[in-house]
Design a protein around this nucleic acid. Sequence first.
DNA 1: CTATGCGATGTAAGCGCTTACAAGGCAAGC
DNA 2: GCTTGCCTTGTAAGCGCTTACATCGCATAG
Lengths: 335, 335
Amino acid sequence: MKTPTLEDVAARAGVSTATVSRCLNAPEKVVERTRLRVMEAVRDLGYAPNFSARALAEKRTRTIGAVIPTMENAIFAEGLQAFQDVLQGGGYTLLIASSGYDPKVEEDQIRTLVARGAEGLLLVGYDRAPAIAAFLEAQNVPSVIAWAHDTTQPGCSVGFDNRAAMRALVTHALELGHRRVAMISAPLQGNDRARERHAGVLAALKERGLELEAMVETPYDLEGGGEALQQVLRDKPETTLVVCGNDVLAAGALEGARIIGLDVPADISITGFDDIALARIVRPALATVRVPHRDMGEAAARAVVSLVETGRAENRILEAQMCLRASLGTPKRPS
Amino acid sequence: MKTPTLEDVAARAGVSTATVSRCLNAPEKVVERTRLRVMEAVRDLGYAPNFSARALAEKRTRTIGAVIPTMENAIFAEGLQAFQDVLQGGGYTLLIASSGYDPKVEEDQIRTLVARGAEGLLLVGYDRAPAIAAFLEAQNVPSVIAWAHDTTQPGCSVGFDNRAAMRALVTHALELGHRRVAMISAPLQGNDRARERHAGVLAALKERGLELEAMVETPYDLEGGGEALQQVLRDKPETTLVVCGNDVLAAGALEGARIIGLDVPADISITGFDDIALARIVRPALATVRVPHRDMGEAAARAVVSLVETGRAENRILEAQMCLRASLGTPKRPS
DNA sequence: CTATGCGATGTAAGCGCTTACAAGGCAAGC
DNA sequence: GCTTGCCTTGTAAGCGCTTACATCGCATAG
């Protein structure tokens, strides 16, 4: 019992395959009487078009690929969900791959997606080998960069200014009186979002003639944040503010502070970035930066589709807002 | 500048398309001298096979579909990641869709995936319209059910016994002396995992001749958990243990308890389910049930592939372990 | 030296669909 | 009545690949 084909439907409806195809793809080109007959045959047979055949004939796969660092993080999941919703509405299918923050894996995934017929790509950040851009160029596969924004870089992007957002947050903290500032970040290597956030911290400090007391790079998990905080305070006990590159590290740092008996924010302030649900549930709640994931995902989807269909799309820069909460307070002994 | 085809490669290497195809798919059937020549042509031209054409000719898409309730939850993300890793290793591509816990959407997604050529499906739980099973049967698309396990149901499943795990946890709590137990759960409608966990609570209670004091169904988020807890304690202030259907609700409940000034676990114990990272970061840490997501994802992938390739696969039931932490304690005033 | 067999390669027929082009029918205009 | 042109439908040529079968060449056996 094989699945019915266009031809089966045509035979049953007593028309040619071309007519059936037209009924499905351009119903207005077929007179109603015929169309109804064909549709009935389609229903009777439970016919469903074969995507591979259609793609081959049309030379279009209607597939978009996305390579994200990890699925196991709410920030990408939410944006990706929005991305997919919009794509699906436009008749596209999304192929997702994750790189685990490994550039080598990311490159493989990109090639795989393209080989799989992706007509356009969603990529996170700008940090990748130039060969990849060349490859995509050669294969004529457009891409949009999300979760970052850099006007000096070519290519379409839908993101926000990680540096400016972080800078604003730290500037605010400095206005509260903080002077001894340390940072805990995910590894900067191969992660321009992390680098931009770092740069934002440095910029805010420099504006006031300050320097970063300490900088710890640590793997992206709660434990890493906790250990990093303890290390920072061992080396620089004068620190009054620990800026974290993301909420997960900040939540870990909060826990680290608790372990060594420090009160947040009385003894030390801690900030995060991303405003994931976790930021609101920990105590004290995390001061952080809210990133408009859904909006970004939706805008990115529209951009990719536009790129695929018309060859052009506009950059879109979204607003990332400071989100002040209890973990950031006035320093006990402003120096 | 269109992408090169098999024919282009064949022409350049001075062989037939059949030989090129063989070089790519069954190299041992081609003598080395020829093979090297062909491979060189492939490299020179930057040839990449066209998946649609291959799928059409082979009548295989090498695509597996998965419909999960949501991507925005670590528990599915982790399992799915493992699922995808195994599939990719086996030369399959994963197509992901999410239903947002809506049965109607899930059905649509399933149909879409099948229309897209999915040769096998990963589904979560058993709860869906019978028409869907019939549809999959008719289309000859095998599926495996994950995150649940029910020996009375037909079909291949890779999961764990939600009911038994919850029952064990509650039984343990009863041994600590709890007698007034309430439950906060995600909506039971259309969610057999939630129903099974609920049944597990009831079973443990019944064994001791007890009944559930209160049962609140609430949307799956932190706020829901917090409000539900407050409601429970307003109605049944004697409650000493609030069992939550998952960690997110439990974390919300923890927060709810804090708001009304109750100490956990001194005044009230709270438990979760899933053991997501959140469970370890909240204070007090959540007593919960650890679900082996990665193992499940991997096993599920092997099962789907086996089902697709051989038509058969074994059920696999994994162990979900109790995970005791500070949020579960001895009741203050055992009744 | 010829018959036999096998391994390497080529030939060509699809896979199911879209679509340019052709064909046929019919209404309107002359 | 015939032409014109539009509208509907049919015909058939691919899309790029796999693969059953045919072919060819050569080594081995008789």
